[in-house]
Computed example of a mutant assay.
Amino acid sequence: MLSSRQTRWLVTGAAGMLGRALCERLEESGAEVTALDRAALDVTDPRAVDEALTAAGPDVVVNCAAMTAVDAAESDEASAHRINADGPRHLARAGARTGAHLVHISTDYVFEGGTADHATPYPEDAEPRPRTAYGRTKLAGERAALTEHPSGTAVLRTGWLYGHHGHSFVGTMVRFAGEGRTADVVDDQFGQPTWTGDLAERILDVARTHATGIYHATSTGQVSWHGLAREVYRLTGADPSLVRAIDSSRLTRPAPRPHWSVLSHEGWARAGLPPLRDWQTALAQALGDGNGWKAYS
């Protein structure tokens, strides 16, 4: 196994919420990091990808680059495919050539999303049935990466991400709570809020163990968006009753949102790792973290 200090890392999408959290964690560990945002590396350009990996010589490549605008992808699936599917393919090919371990970040949107009473978490080997352009292109990216570099690719599916950088639902609720605002939040969509700090730590674990295959990198437990918002209000000292429950049928969006985004985590045993911790404990630490919520102050 390699320690993060002994490992050279290349992170794509390094200016995003997860990318920034991961780069901060790697810098804390003393690792050598090449952090590339979209301006520095266009993952849709195979020559640029090949040159970047050749120049940096990374042991581990983490692909945080993605088109995550779910509604925009519905009207421009071709662009989403170039970033979410072709990008991972180029990175995997370059990784296979250079011997780099690829950690590719994927999504719960590869699944159908069921109904609010679905009740059974999706295991890693469940049949994906994406209902959105975003989900289809992310699934294509998973398959491309695993096909091009099967002995050196780990796919980490995550969802409901929040962190200290960029925009997220939790960040918005922190701001609303601080302003004493009411919030109407859907109560018929369930998932697993996942802190970028926890996911960044798990990415380091994956690199140390050289895990390959598909893993569900979400916090354990489950909650609705309404329940999550109430917990944010409670933890920040605001009145949870200011969060009012609504039905998702009141919201009309181009891309359908999953009612059930709860994933199971049996795959981690394969890598000798435990699942991520429960979402409540992680949220409490994230909200009390000394880094603060700079994006929302």
Score class of each variant (00 low, 15 high):
R8V: 06
W9Y: 15
L10V: 04
L10I: 03
V11Y: 01
V11F: 06
A14S: 15
A15Q: 12
G19K: 02
R20C: 10
R20E: 09
A21N: 01
C23G: 01
E24P: 00
R25C: 01
R25H: 08
L26Q: 03
L26M: 12
S29E: 15
S29P: 00
S29K: 12
S29F: 00
G30I: 07
G30P: 03
G30S: 07
E32P: 00
E32T: 14
V33Q: 02
V33H: 01
A35C: 10
D37C: 07
D37R: 14
R38V: 02
A40Q: 15
A40H: 11
A40G: 14
A40I: 00
D42L: 08
D42M: 09
V43A: 06
V43F: 03
V43C: 13
T44V: 08
T44A: 15
D45A: 12
D45S: 14
P46L: 13
P46R: 12
P46S: 14
R47T: 13
A48L: 11
V49N: 05
D50G: 14
D50Q: 14
A52N: 06
A52S: 07
A52G: 07
L53C: 10
L53G: 09
L53S: 11
T54Y: 02
A56E: 07
G57F: 00
P58D: 11
D59G: 13
D59Y: 03
D59T: 02
V60S: 08
V60D: 09
V60M: 06
V60T: 13
V60Q: 08
V60I: 13
V61Y: 04
N63V: 03
N63R: 05
C64D: 10
C64V: 07
A66T: 08
A66Y: 05
M67D: 15
T68F: 11
T68L: 12
T68S: 15
A69R: 15
D71T: 05
D71Q: 12
A73Q: 05
D76K: 12
D76W: 09
E77N: 05
E77W: 09
E77S: 14
S79R: 15
S79V: 00
S79C: 02
A80N: 11
R82Q: 14
I83V: 15
N84T: 10
A85P: 08
D86M: 14
D86W: 10
G87N: 09
P88G: 12
R89A: 14
H90A: 11
H90Q: 02
L91D: 01
R93H: 07
A94P: 04
G95D: 02
R97S: 13
R97Q: 13
T98I: 02
T98A: 13
G99W: 08
G99L: 12
G99E: 09
G99Y: 02
H101Y: 04
H101L: 14
H101W: 13
H101T: 01
V103W: 06
V103C: 08
V103R: 07
S106I: 04
D108N: 14
D108M: 06
Y109C: 05
Y109F: 14
V110L: 10
V110M: 06
V110G: 03
V110F: 04
G113A: 10
